[in-house]
Design a protein around this nucleic acid. Structure first.
Length: 132
DNA sequence: GTGATGACGATAT
DNA sequence: TATATCGCCATCA
């Protein structure tokens, strides 16, 4: 019952990602906390193909650190585009603009999760420029 | 118990 | 920018 809880924690975190935003496997793993790394998140997402859970998990919002979807078809990318996420012609998205900023820190603290480390918050050059 | 595997990440070249 | 390597850790055969 312990192992399932790890995946359940992963699903809980993924459900926090708002529509129109994307999070990397590493970000989700960081919020869940050890012993969980990016591969566990990938495994948890893959498990959704074999069994559905409810409430539903917005698995399409989890992508790799390179800003690309890790699934084969264009299904995932298409779903995200419908949510407003923009991909370039090479299938990459700007994590600085669409990347998740992490869960509410108070919520995370109260529920046994971690806040997203500054090192995992992607900031685009465009954002820095627009700040000026 | 042991080894192979995976919707990954960071670093080096 | 793209490819190659190694590290990572729960699962599964």
């Amino acid at each position: 019952m312990r192992e399932e809880e790890l995946y359940e924690r992963v699903y809980t975190v993924v459900r926090l990602i708002p529509s129109g935003r994307v999070a990397t496997y590493g970000q989700v793993a960081a919020v869940v906390g050890p012993p969980c790394d990016a591969r566990e998140v990938g495994g948890a997402m893959a498990a959704l193909r074999y069994q559905r859970v409810d409430p539903p998990v917005p698995w399409q919002r989890v992508i790799n650190a390179q800003g690309r979807v890790s699934t084969q078809g264009l299904e995932q990318q298409h779903l995200l585009e419908e949510e407003g996420v923009v991909f370039d012609e090479k299938g990459r998205t700007d994590l600085g603009r669409f990347g998740w900023e992490g869960p509410d820190e108070g919520w995370a603290e109260a529920n046994g999760f971690h806040a997203l480390p500054e090192s995992l918050r992607f900031k685009s050059g465009a954002e820095q420029l627009s700040l000026f």
